[in-house]
Amino acid sequence: MTALGTRRPPDAAMVRRPARVRLLWLLVLVLTLALIMLASVAFGSRTVPFSDVLAALGGAEDTLEQAAVTKRIPRTVLALVIGAALGLAGAVMQGVTRNPLADPGILGVNMGASLAVVTAVAYFGLTSPTGYVWVAMAGAAVSAVFVYTVGSLGRGGATPLKLALAGAATSAAFASLVTAVVLPRNDIAGSFRLWQIGGVGGASFERIGHVLPFLAVGCAICLLSARTLNSLALGDELAAGLGERVALARATAAVGAVVLCGAATAVAGPIGFVGLVVPHACRLLTGVDHRWLLPFSALAGAALLTAADVVGRVVARPAEVDVGIVTALIGAPFFIHIVRRQKVRAL
């Protein structure tokens, strides 16, 4: 019998959090998000005083500072919705696969969506904003199925490491194919080279309006899958014993995540690591109950991506660093840390 003094402490993510603690953290997260939103409209190549921010939010555009705030509002809204979508999709993917390394970027889902959009534009003349979203979702779905199939081959099935390796290889291959498609086409190379990195620059309420219905549907599917994901976390056999139709439940939740990834990639490009970092951080605050984890991941994803966009605008004034680069700088060390942790086999 293990001595009390040498007993391994429970994982922080596995400890059940009281409801009042979760509500407190939710309030902190909402207030943090509000401050980040305020920073997003105040900081950039031109710093805007608080008085001008309030005036611009009230509809005034009398000064350059107030006009700058007005232009930053759609960018802030886009960063919020894309960050929420990627954070929520990452939490669902980790729940569906029971894989702590699951992330739309790491598993190749975002790059599959990018390849589909670039191919459709270059060879089929795709111009419709709504068409972008449908094509991106199709590419994301095909890529997700392909990576999961490859990662499931061999002994042990779809282990986290095998899925991560399959996703990394697929992402690298798809990135090369995107470059091969874009380079000969000078008419689209300039715009797609920036889009390929991932960013929220050039946002407008019109662009947001095209993608918002798809994000709303994907978000609803994911949130409604919370109880099912809790059952799947117990293992397939026990979930089936509790009355869950395991294959259907897993497929439904995965569809919601794919819709979110495809829609987000269509409008902002392949932004990585948000779906990896956010769910792990939120588990420390909420535990593993997906009824709490999924809304927290959406809010934290919105906060992370918006903050990354602010950092990208501030560190390289008057130019800017695309948000996809900033999230990669944040997420890559975190990914290495997760891989190096002992006993990282499943959630």
Rank of each mutant, 00 (worst) to 15 (best):
L4A: 15
G5D: 14
R7K: 13
R16K: 12
L26R: 01
V28D: 00
L29F: 02
L29M: 12
L31G: 11
L33K: 03
A34V: 13
I36N: 10
A39D: 12
V48Q: 08
P49M: 06
G58D: 13
T70R: 14
K71T: 15
V77R: 02
V77E: 05
L80S: 06
A84Y: 11
L86V: 10
M93E: 03
Q94Y: 12
Q94P: 07
V96A: 12
V96Y: 07
R98W: 14
P100Q: 07
A102F: 08
A116Y: 12
V117H: 02
V118G: 00
T127M: 00
V133C: 02
W134Y: 11
M137K: 00
M137V: 15
A144D: 10
V145P: 00
F146K: 00
V147Q: 09
Y148L: 12
G151Q: 12
L153P: 01
G157A: 11
A158L: 14
L161M: 15
A172K: 05
A175I: 02
S176H: 00
T179M: 13
V181Y: 05
V182Y: 00
R185S: 12
S191V: 00
R193I: 07
L194Q: 14
Q196N: 08
Q196Y: 08
I197H: 06
G202K: 06
F205P: 06
I208S: 03
I208D: 04
F214S: 04
L229I: 03
S231H: 08
G235A: 07
D236T: 02
L238C: 00
A247N: 01
A247K: 09
A247R: 12
L248C: 06
A251C: 02
A253F: 05
G256Y: 07
G256M: 05
V258K: 08
V259C: 03
A264N: 06
A266H: 09
V267D: 08
A268S: 15
G275F: 05
G275T: 11
V277A: 10
H280Q: 10
H280T: 03
A281C: 15
C282K: 06
R283K: 15
L284A: 14
L284S: 12
T286I: 00
T286Y: 01
V288G: 14
W292Q: 13
G312M: 05
G312N: 10
V314G: 06
R317H: 03
R317G: 02
V321S: 08
G324A: 07
G324E: 07
V326D: 05
T327I: 11
G331T: 10
I336L: 14
R340V: 11
V344G: 04
